[in-house]
Simulated assay, not measured.
Amino acid sequence: MSDPISTLSPAGDRHFDGLADKFAASLYGGARGELRLALLNRLLPEMLDLHGQPLLDVGGGLGQQAGWFAVRGHAVTLAEPSGEMLARARASLAGHEVNLLQAPLQELTQLAPGPWPLIACHAVLEWLADPRSALATLAGLMAPGGQLSLMVFNRDALRLSNVVKGNLEKALADRLEGKGLRKRLTPISPLTHAQVEAWSAESGLAIREVAGIRVFADYLREPPQSEADREQLLALEQRYCRVDPHWRLGRYLLYTLERPLRSSEEATA
């Protein structure tokens, strides 16, 4: 039997060439994907100060989030390393004025340096070999006073999900990361809230808002079958997604990070 074929980039990151169909079906198809987008539709205007400022969408994938910002008057640049994903984004964004750039996050310092008043980086860091350095790179792209909408795959929620499935030994050993092999879509670098807190502080960013995306949905024994059940679930998610302790077990954690206008050193000089 041959060894599994790795789909990691030379930098050790997970890109999605050859996986666009599975990515679209697994992450956006069905009730969970619809719920994720519905929650973002509600939360982004609450958590961000939006006034049509230019936006850099990092790892923009299929283009859903870029389209959301474009229709609200933002001049959007979508950066995505996968040519296959970028082609799908181009098709889905037909009619929108969105600048498309094929580039990984690490090259944006040269290719899209900004500084940007608004950056979105949703479900990207968990697919990178070095998410800590990636967050520092994002911080360097931000204008003073700029905002970063960051969404990451929650390691603590992944642990609970494994327990619910009966994978007790795996959860106890904390073997939660995917390996980036074949067509499996378990993130290679799921993150904890503590890591986001620490790395944000290192990069000079302040956490202004936080919410959990899909706090309850992924733990249901059966997905909601009727439209009424789906509406009830959405209402439940919306009610508790920003309430402690519930947000801490969202499948994704959504943050608004801000680069202060002046550093603390400058303010006290």
Rank of each mutant, 00 (worst) to 15 (best):
R72S: 07
D130S: 13
D13P: 01
G146I: 06
G33D: 03
A171S: 08
A269R: 15
V98F: 04
V58G: 02
A79Y: 08
L39Y: 00
D229W: 08
E266V: 13
D130M: 01
L48W: 08
R262S: 09
H51T: 04
P10M: 09
K165A: 15
R132N: 01
T256Y: 00
A198I: 04
G33M: 03
K165C: 08
N41C: 12
Q53E: 11
S203I: 06
S6W: 04
L148M: 04
A79I: 05
G180R: 03
S149M: 02
A20T: 15
G83C: 01
S82Q: 14
G140L: 06
L111P: 12
S133E: 14
R259T: 02
H122S: 05
H51Y: 05
M47E: 01
G166K: 05
L50P: 00
D49F: 10
D21L: 08
A70V: 07
R184I: 07
I119E: 10
T268F: 14
L205V: 05
S2M: 12
R72I: 05
D174P: 10
C241S: 07
A120L: 03
A129R: 13
L257I: 09
A11F: 13
L37Y: 08
L128C: 14
T256A: 00
G61R: 02
A87T: 12
D49K: 12
S26N: 14
A211D: 04
E107D: 13
D156M: 03
W199T: 11
R14F: 13
E169F: 12
P115E: 01
L150V: 03
A11P: 11
A38Y: 02
L160I: 13
T268C: 12
V210W: 09
T7S: 15
G63K: 04
R42F: 02
S263V: 13
N41I: 04
A129N: 15
E258V: 02
L19P: 05
D3G: 13
N154W: 03
R262P: 01
A171Y: 08
L50C: 03
S133T: 12
L62H: 11
E97M: 15
D174F: 13
W127M: 08
F216Y: 06
D156R: 06
V243G: 00
S263Y: 09
S203K: 11
P187D: 15
H15G: 10
S9D: 15
A171I: 07
G166R: 05
D156S: 08
I207W: 03
A217I: 14
Q53W: 12
I207Q: 10
P10S: 11
P113G: 11
P104L: 08
A11G: 07
G73A: 02
R175Y: 05
P54S: 00
R32H: 14
T7W: 11
R14G: 09
L181E: 09
A94S: 15
R42K: 05
R230F: 09
G212F: 01
A129Y: 09
L125M: 12
A136C: 06
A139S: 10
E222H: 10
R248G: 07
M47R: 03
L249G: 04
L141S: 00
M85N: 11
P260S: 03
V98Q: 04
Q53V: 04
W68M: 12
R259P: 00
A134L: 06
G83M: 01
D13S: 06
D244P: 02
F69W: 04
A112H: 08
A123S: 12
V98W: 03
Y28I: 05
A157P: 10
A217C: 13
E209N: 15
V71P: 00
A201F: 10
